[in-house]
Design a protein around this nucleic acid. Structure first.
Length: 593
DNA sequence: CGTGATGACG
C-alpha cells in the first residue's frame, strides 16, 4: 500500500492499518476482520475499490458472502477487479446465481470483463455442462481464447463436469499452450480414467513439473496399477507433500495399510492432508484404535483438525460404525468452531445416523441454520432406515413445503420410507411422480427400493418382472432382495429363477448362501441345497460368519452368528430370547433357520 | 493444473 492512499489527516493511524491491510485479502478470522472493517469504515476508506476488494475476499473466506456483497455495494465506481472479486466470492460460497448476477451487472455497467472474469465464473458453474458451453461460446466471440488463462480453466471445467472429450478439444485447438494447459489435460484424462492416454500426453510434454508427475501418480493409483505408480514415484526428480500423499492415499484405498503407513512414516514433511488420509484410511477399515492414536499424534505434531479432515474422518466413521471416534471429531470440531459449515453438519448427521444415534442426528439437523439439500436428504433417509417411515415421509412433505426441490437421492430415502411402512401404492406413486414432476430418471437404487417393497408385499412375480424389464442391468442387491422376499414368502419357484444370476454376481457371498439354503431347507429340497453349495465355487469359509460390531457406552463389541465368545454372551442370548417371545406375542412368526 | 472432502437399493 502506498502512503498517499490515505487523506493526510489520517496519516498517524495509517501505519497501523497498513499492516492489517497487507494481509487483509486472506483474513479468515471473522472477529479480526470485523475490527479492521470498522477501522476502514471510520477512515472512509471503504469506497476505495482496492481496499474493498480485499474486504470482499476476506468475507468470502469467512463464509460471509452477503457481507462481501454489502462491501461491494458501497463502492461508487467498481472496477473490473472489484467485480471479479465479488464473482469469485460467490463462486467460493457455492452461489452460482449470484455469481452470474454480478457478471450481468458488470455487463450492464460500462466495465469490461477481462481474462480473470471468466475463470471465476466457470468455477461457479462447475458441473453444469450447459452453462460451461454458454460461457465457452461467449469467450470465443470475445476472442479470449488467444491467451492461455481462459482456455485452461475451460479444460478444467469441462473435465470436472465429466466432459473429458470437450476438455481435450479445447486443448487441441489452443494456439499457444503453457505448462498449466498440459497439466490440465493430463489431469482431465486421469479423471476420466484414461490413464494410458494421460501417459501418452505426459510423455509428449515439452517440460514437466511436480504437478505433472503427481497427476500421473494419481492416475496409476486410481486404476490400481500400484507398481507403475511406485516406479514413477521413485523416478520423479522432485517429490513434494502432494506426491507422498497421493501414494499414501492410493495404498489406503487399496486396503494395503502397511504400505500406506510405511510411506506415511517416511514422509519428510506432513501437513494436515496426509494425516487425514491415514486417519480416514484406518477409520474406513474399522481400525478405530489406530485412527484414534494417529489423531493424538497429529495434535502432538502441532497440527489441528480442519474442515476437510473433519468431513473426511466423519465419513469414514459413518462407513465403519465408529461412533466413538465420530464423537471425538464432533467435539473437536465444536471446539475449533468448525461446526458452522453445512458440509460438516451434514457429515455429522450421516455419521450419527449410520452409527445408530438417530436422536443426535436429529438434534444436529434441527439445530442447523442453513440446511441444504444434502441435509434434508440425509435426514429423510436416516428416519427411514431407523424404521420411522411415517416421520420420514412427513419430513419429505415439510421439505416440499419449504420449497426445496428434491433430487434423485431424496427419492431413494422416500422409497425406503415406504418400504418401512409397507406402502406399496404410495411407493408406486412416488416412483411415477419423481419422473413426471421432477424429471428424475430412475437409477438402479430406485428400482432396488421399488422391487424390494413389491417383494416384501408378496408381489414376487411383479418384482421379478420389473427386474427383468427395467432399462438397467439388475445387480446383486436387486436379486438379493427378491431372494430375501422368496424366503419370506416361501417361493422356491422364483428363487430358482434367480439363483444363477445372483451367484454369478456374488459367488462367495455368505449372506446369499444363507438365504438360499434357508429356502431349500424350508421347502425340504435338500438336493437343491447341495446344488447351491456347488455353485458357490469360490466359497470362503471365513465369510460364512456374519458379524457385526456395535458400540455401547464407549466399548466396542463384536457379535457373530453362533458366537459364544462375548463376555456377556449369556445375558445377550437371554435378552434375545425375551425379545423373541415378545415379538411372537405381537404376532410375528419367527423364520425357520 | 496435482493429495483428504457430506447424502442412495440387501
Amino acid at each position: 500500500m502506498s502512503g498517499n492512499l490515505y487523506p493526510p489527516q489520517f496519516a498517524s493511524s495509517s501505519r497501523h492499518l497498513d499492516q492489517n491491510l497487507s494481509n487483509l485479502h486472506k483474513c479468515s478470522d471473522t472477529r479480526r476482520l470485523l475490527q479492521i472493517h470498522s477501522q476502514i469504515f471510520r477512515l472512509h476508506l471503504h469506497t476505495n475499490p482496492f481496499i474493498a476488494s480485499k474486504l470482499i475476499a476476506s468475507y468470502s473466506l469467512c463464509l460471509l458472502p452477503s457481507s462481501a456483497a454489502a462491501v461491494f455495494n458501497l463502492v461508487p465506481d467498481p472496477t473490473s477487479h472489484l467485480f471479479n472479486t465479488l464473482i469469485r466470492a460467490f463462486a467460493q460460497n457455492s452461489l452460482p446465481s449470484l455469481s452470474f448476477n454480478t457478471f450481468f451487472r458488470m455487463q450492464l455497467s460500462s466495465v469490461k470483463a477481462d481474462s480473470f472474469t471468466y475463470p471465476f465464473l466457470l468455477k461457479s458453474f462447475s458441473g453444469s455442462v450447459h452453462t460451461i458451453e454458454l460461457i465457452h461460446a461467449h469467450v470465443i466471440k470475445l476472442g479470449f481464447l488467444t491467451d492461455t488463462f481462459v482456455p485452461n480453466s475451460l479444460i478444467d471445467s469441462y473435465s470436472k463436469a465429466g466432459e473429458s472429450e470437450a476438455a481435450c478439444k479445447v486443448f487441441d485447438e489452443m494456439p499457444v499452450r503453457d505448462l498449466v494447459s498440459w497439466n490440465s489435460v493430463v489431469a482431465a484424462l486421469v479423471r476420466a480414467g484414461d490413464v494410458s492416454d494421460a501417459r501418452g500426453v505426459f510423455d509428449q510434454m515439452p517440460e514437466r513439473d511436480t504437478v505433472s508427475w503427481n497427476s500421473m501418480l494419481d492416475g496409476y493409483m486410481k486404476v490400481g496399477e500400484m507398481d507403475a505408480a511406485f516406479d514413477l514415484f521413485s523416478r520423479m526428480p522432485v517429490r513434494n507433500v502432494v506426491s507422498w500423499s497421493t501414494m499414501v492415499s492410493g495404498y489406503c484405498n487399496k486396503g494395503d495399510m502397511e504400505m500406506a503407513r510405511m510411506l506415511f512414516d517416511k514422509m519428510p514433511v506432513k501437513n494436515v492432508v496426509p494425516w487425514t488420509i491415514m486417519i480416514s484410511g484406518y477409520a474406513g477399515k474399522g481400525l478405530d484404535k489406530e485412527a484414534s492414536s494417529l489423531m493424538d499424534q497429529m495434535e502432538e505434531a502441532g497440527l489441528e483438525l480442519d474442515s476437510g479432515a473433519a468431513v473426511s474422518i466423519l465419513t469414514a466413521c459413518a462407513h465403519s460404525d465408529l461412533l466413538g471416534l465420530g464423537k471425538r471429531i464432533h467435539h473437536k470440531a465444536k471446539r475449533r468452531k468448525l461446526m458452522f459449515t453445512t458440509q460438516i453438519s451434514n457429515a455429522l448427521i450421516d455419521m450419527y445416523s449410520k452409527c445408530g444415534d438417530l436422536d443426535e442426528a436429529w438434534n444436529i439437523f434441527e439445530g442447523m441454520e442453513d440446511k441444504d439439500l444434502v441435509s434434508w436428504n440425509s435426514m429423510v433417509h436416516a428416519l427411514a432406515m431407523h424404521g420411522y417411515g411415517k416421520k420420514s415421509l412427513e419430513l419429505f412433505a415439510r421439505m416440499e413445503e419449504e420449497g426445496i426441490i428434491p433430487d434423485s437421492f431424496t427419492f431413494v430415502g422416500v422409497l425406503c420410507a415406504c418400504t418401512q411402512v409397507g406402502l406399496i401404492k404410495q411407493a408406486r406413486r412416488y416412483f411415477i411422480s419423481m419422473q413426471k414432476d421432477y424429471e428424475i430418471v430412475p437409477r438402479i437404487e430406485h428400482y432396488g427400493c421399488l422391487i424390494d417393497i413389491l417383494g416384501r408385499g408378496g408381489l414376487l412375480m411383479e418384482a421379478y418382472n420389473l427386474a427383468k424389464s427395467m432399462p438397467l442391468e439388475p445387480n446383486a442387491i436387486i436379486w438379493g432382495s427378491i431372494l430375501n422376499a422368496c424366503r419370506f414368502h416361501n417361493n422356491v419357484g422364483i428363487a430358482e429363477k434367480i439363483i444363477d444370476e445372483l451367484v454369478s454376481l456374488e459367488p462367495s457371498d455368505a449372506g446369499n448362501f444363507g438365504i438360499i439354503s434357508n429356502i431349500y431347507a424350508a421347502a425340504g429340497k435338500w438336493d437343491g441345497l447341495a446344488k447351491a453349495r456347488l455353485k458357490m465355487k469360490d466359497f470362503d469359509r471365513h465369510k460364512l460368519v456374519g458379524s457385526r460390531r456395535i458400540e455401547l457406552n464407549d466399548n466396542a463389541h463384536e457379535l457373530a452368528v453362533e458366537d459364544r465368545m462375548h463376555p456377556q454372551a449369556d445375558r445377550i442370548l437371554r435378552m434375545l430370547n425375551r425379545l423373541g417371545k415378545y415379538v411372537e406375542k405381537l404376532g410375528y412368526a419367527a423364520e425357520v433357520r
